[in-house]
Design a binder for these strands. Structure first.
Length: 999
RNA sequence: GCCUUGGUGGCGGAAUUGGUAGACGCGCUGGAUUCAAAAUCCAGUUCCUUUGGAGUGUGGGUUCGAUUCCCACCCAAGGUACCA
């Protein structure tokens, strides 16, 4: 009987769906295990083979855990709000909700394009997802809870004394009693101080404004990159050289009132929490760097002739007597004010030049030193000496205060700046030469020339100077974080609407929880309005009636009982910041999730996803989780115990090379190999129309006289060829290519030896290059096609077999035949009967078969625990090869073997399991138990090395002593042959391992 | 610049604690089977000047022994904030 994978896979996928095999219960005698994938954004392009890599790995792990007796939660859903759907809506006028549904469920879009749909594609790969728990972030019954969390954040403040988020009502009570003098909270810098009496005297508007300084989500003016032409705000990396990446429109910095999330309140806890999660170190490093904690002091420098002060943050307050200038970021707010008339022109020119440079550019360029003196002077807090104030683009406005106290003797950048501009470099270090470079070694610092700090090391000097600064009222010790509050408003249509309306004073009010969700209004176009308002400004029914408690027409707005709703929507990361908890109880309409559900599942045990989410999704999710923990909603303040980053699968593009300097009427493609020969031979190309044969010969030989150029790769333009037209030997299907690109219908193809390709006998070999998998590079490989041709089990095995999960690796469809023929061999192992009929015996297996089985159990179990899935596929191949040659057909071997294979290739496993006589799914069959006794050996084939190089092998009993081994080896003829009469200096014997003879 | 990851045959990769470098698979070569092809099976396949020798990005070091540990460097990919 043949291995009929198409029918087998269909049969079991239907079986799993019908029997709800993978539906997880929220209570069980078994221990729980939660395996989570980062859910996909359902794009119209569908899945390619790179997408399921992580899903296959997590599925193997989830299935393995079921075999190990766990109650496994393995859900899947869609992160279905997002920009591509909105762009598509703008272009085609289709509602993003419709296109999104088609992308998930399949169907035909307005253009008549058939879309398979993510769900079908995923189902085809045999994943053990519990689809009854599916969530879609763009469904109102899901985003109801995203809005709900937003309201909870609005109604909370961060109490630094308690080090947790608390109810805003408690803060109001405290204000009524004592004002805000004794409140320790994370709040805006410019929060005024007031007494209880002040508070009581405030108007409602004033009170609300004060409270916004404390709320965990708050309205603030933030600067954004505004692109008037696109009517939208752009991210830093959407801007290239000061203009938008799309369309090249000018971008201006604009202040906008937007919602912000006070993530900075959690900076320290986000940092500390990294200690207790098992996440990849590079990912932890990037979060640590993103949070950017540094300890030092805030120092205020008074300005000469101005009331203002320049605030700086420094990690080296101990070096304050070494300050010889200050540098402000060119964007610093004081620059315009303090620049003297003489310097004005130079400063303005410099600012203009800086504005054209991106932050990345300013950061990466350490060689160019630039800056301009403002003409102004600050005053040293202790010596009262004047300090010149410069501007320089090595200081970034976005970090700290945007100003630096420059200590050239202790900081290399300040040193280089001072040298370049001939600024004084006072030495304040004892016994250190600073004539060549700055001295930045904190540990070996002894301060000198510094008044009251003389003779002190770094730590004591820092302590002392902070105390002195505090006395002067010009500074204090401070911990600074790079982390900024996160802007939470987007001027887009396809996102969660805010449950917020604005009163006549422009103050925000939350809609009561019981009226959620506030669903997205219909609009007739998805672009910003003509007045520059976000797309929701196009809605005619987008006002909140506080009496009727519903969304009503805009015309009813009276600012008494009917108010305007927020026109912004939430960002992409809103919906993904708590979905892992919602999966635990996804249909609950009363609560975000029940306490029973969250207390049972607790947290994610294994999370698999891409490293590109290191500082976005994964940081915001941790923030929301900590907030929910403070509110007593979740039992764990970190949502995922272990995290694995899967690498990218890159595509192997295929190229044909068009000769750009031929003057024949026909297009000529030369093979990669032939061009190499021509270039290596330094062949010449001439420009005369000749019969084709002459033309080819002129490529390789120098034609007398009329030479125009030496052959060069630049003469041959590479064009992508669709990878589906190339076989496993890199041979192009020439006819297929001509049909695919009709403009090349008459093209001539020249093979590796300069032959013109005609018919099937000659081969055009394409060039290969590894690139990101993308439609435009024609290197996308569709998993459906692979499933069709080789089956889902082959696809699953092959994706794992490609290499280590975490590394990026190129896809090459040709190699899949290896794992496919492995599955066929596996099938034959169970079908040794006449005409390939199913047949297993009840005979006792021989010793070798037991050994093969148990070493396989051991290795596969270790591999899965270490997420080394590629090596277990090899192990299966070795096992099947060995069992085949042992002619093993014993049930005692073949039954446990198929359980081992089952997490990787579940369809074939179910089929064989059924044939073995089981009427229940294999999915919960207990994982075979490894027994050491089958691997015990009595002898070992020792490698015999000479000076560390293995020269021959010798089979010896394992119970020989060291001396016995040595004498046996030394007496061996091959040893004498190697030594050629020499006497060895030394013989190293490691019993059970190796023998090494030195000399 | 800085941080992170990586560099092993023609290709993907293996070598889990310092102990046989190249497992397993692809590709390639030869053979069997076949009218032929597909499929399947068997043998070979790191390189070289082959009774031997060299070899895991480069150059050093530690060691009886290094892909593995240490130092310096080169290259590639990803990230990034001159962090004061």
């Amino acid at each position: 009987m043949q291995y009929d994978f198409n029918n087998i896979e269909k049969k079991w996928q239907e079986y799993w769906a019908k029997n709800q095999t993978f539906k997880a219960k929220n209570d069980s005698e078994k221990e729980k295990f939660y395996v989570l994938d980062m859910f996909p954004y359902p794009s119209g392009a569908g899945l390619h083979v790179g997408h399921p890599l992580g899903y296959i790995a997590s599925d193997i792990y989830a299935r393995y855990k079921r075999h190990k007796g766990f109650n496994v939660l393995h859900p899947m859903g869609y992160d279905s709000f997002g920009l591509p759907a909105e762009q598509y809506a703008i272009q085609t006028g289709q509602h993003p909700a419709d296109t999104t549904r088609v992308n998930i469920e399949g169907g035909v879009d307005k253009e008549g394009k058939k879309i398979e749909g993510y769900r079908k594609q995923l189902d085809r790969m045999g994943f053990s997802f519990d689809w009854s728990r599916e969530v879609r972030t763009s469904n109102p019954n899901y985003y109801k809870w995203t809005q709900w969390i937003f309201i909870q954040l609005f109604n909370s403040w961060y109490n630094t004394d308690a080090d947790k988020a608390e109810d805003i009502a408690d803060l109001i009570t405290a204000f009524e009693k004592n004002g805000n003098a004794n409140i320790k909270a994370v709040c805006d810098e410019d929060t005024p101080s007031f007494t209880a009496e002040d508070w009581k005297a405030f108007s409602e508007k004033e009170k609300q404004e004060v409270l916004l300084n404390y709320r965990l989500t708050y309205l603030a003016e933030s600067e954004v990159n505004w692109c008037p032409a696109l009517g939208t705000v752009l991210a830093n990396d959407e801007i290239v050289n000061g203009v938008s990446e799309r369309g090249g429109h000018p971008v201006v910095r604009k202040k906008m009132t937007q919602w912000s999330m006070r993530i900075t309140a959690y900076a320290q806890r986000l940092l500390d929490g990294l200690q207790k999660v098992d996440w990849p170190q590079p990912l932890k490093d990037s979060q640590t760097n993103w949070i950017g904690r540094s300890v030092g002091a805030a120092v205020d420098f008074n300005l000469k002739d101005f009331e203002d002060t320049i605030s700086v943050f420094t990690t080296r307050p101990d070096t304050i007597f070494g300050v010889s200038f200050m540098t402000l970021a060119p964007e610093h707010e004081l620059v315009g004010k303090i620049t003297t008339p003489e310097q004005k022109e130079a400063v303005e020119a410099y600012i203009e030049a800086t504005a054209k440079r991106s932050e990345r550019e300013r950061m990466a360029d350490v060689k160019t030193i630039s800056g301009v003196f403002t003409g102004a002077y600050a005053e040293h807090p202790f010596t009262k000496e004047p300090i010149p104030v410069w501007i320089g683009d090595y200081v970034l406005a976005g970090y700290g205060t945007g100003a630096v106290m420059a200590v050239p003797c202790g900081d290399q950048r300040d040193y280089d700046f001072a040298k370049h501009f001939n600024i004084d470099i006072p030495n304040i270090f004892e016994g250190v030469d600073i004539s060549e470079e700055a001295f930045a070694d904190k540990e070996n610092t002894v301060i000198a020339n510094s008044d009251f700090l003389n003779g002190l090391p770094y730590k004591e000097a820092t302590k002392k100077v902070i105390a002195e600064l505090e006395k002067l009222g010009q500074g204090e010790g401070k911990v600074n974080y790079r982390l900024r509050d996160a802007v939470f408003s987007r001027q887009r249509y396809w996102g969660e609407p805010f449950p917020v309306y604005y009163d006549a004073d422009g103050l925000p009010h939350m809609i009561e929880e019981e009226h959620l969700p506030i669903t997205l209004p219909e609009v007739d176009k998805y672009l910003p309005t003509e007045t520059g308002e976000p797309p929701l400004g196009n809605a005619t029914e987008w006002a909140w009636d506080t009496v009727a408690k519903k969304v009503v027409e805009n015309s009813k707005i009276d600012n008494k009982t009917v108010f305007a709703l927020d026109l912004n929507t939430m960002p992409g990361w809103a919906g993904s910041s708590q979905y892992f908890n919602r999966y635990m109880d996804p249909k609950n309409e009363q609560e975000i999730f029940s306490q029973e559900a969250i207390n049972y599942w607790q947290d994610v045990d294994l999370y698999i996803g891409g490293s590109e989410h290191a500082t976005g999704h994964l940081l915001y999710s941790r923030f929301w989780q900590k907030f929910m923990f403070d509110k007593g909603l979740v039992p764990k303040d970190e949502f995922a115990k272990k995290l694995i980053n899967q690498g990218m699968i890159t595509g192997t593009s295929a190229f044909v090379y068009r000769w750009s300097q031929n003057y024949l009427e026909k297009v000529i493609f030369l093979s990669h190999g032939f061009i190499s020969k021509v270039v290596d031979a330094r062949g010449f190309v001439n420009d005369y129309s000749k019969p084709l044969e002459n033309l080819i010969s002129s490529l390789t030989s120098k034609p007398g006289g009329r030479v125009i150029s030496e052959a060069n790769w630049k003469n041959f333009m590479p064009l992508h060829a669709d990878v589906s037209l190339v076989n496993s030997s890199d041979e192009l299907d020439v006819e297929g290519f001509k049909n695919w690109r009709p403009e090349f219908k008459d093209a001539i193809f020249i093979g590796d030896n300069g032959e013109i390709i005609e018919g099937d006998n000659d081969k055009y070999i394409v060039g290969r290059e590894v690139e990101k998998m993308s439609k435009s590079k024609y290197n996308v490989v569709n998993p459906d096609a692979i499933c069709e041709e080789f089956g889902a089990d082959s696809l699953r095995l092959y994706e794992m077999f490609l290499g280590p999960l975490e590394q990026s690796k190129p896809w090459n469809t040709a190699g899949i035949t290896g794992v496919h023929s492995f599955l066929k061999k596996l099938w034959r192992l169970y079908h040794g009967g006449a005409d390939g009929a199913f047949e297993v015996s009840d005979e006792e297996p021989n010793k070798d078969s037991w050994k093969t089985l148990h070493k396989t159990i051991k290795k596969v179990e270790e591999d899965i625990e270490n997420f080394s899935f590629n090596t277990s596929v090899s192990t299966f191949m070795i096992a099947v090869n060995e069992l085949s040659s042992q002619k093993c057909a014993s049930r005692k071997i073949l039954e446990p073997l198929i359980i081992l294979v089952s997490p990787y290739a579940p369809h074939i496993a179910e089929e064989l399991w059924e044939k073995l006589g089981h009427d229940e799914s294999i999915s919960e069959a207990p994982f075979p138990k490894f027994e050491e006794k089958y691997l015990v050996e009595s002898s070992k084939e020792y490698p015999i090395s000479f000076n560390g190089k293995m020269r021959f092998k010798l089979e010896l009993p394992l119970d020989l002593s060291k001396d016995e081994i040595e004498s046996t080896v030394m007496a061996h003829e091959k040893t004498q042959q190697q030594l050629q009469g020499r006497t060895p200096k030394k013989v190293i014997v490691v019993p059970g391992k190796i023998v090494n003879i030195v000399g």
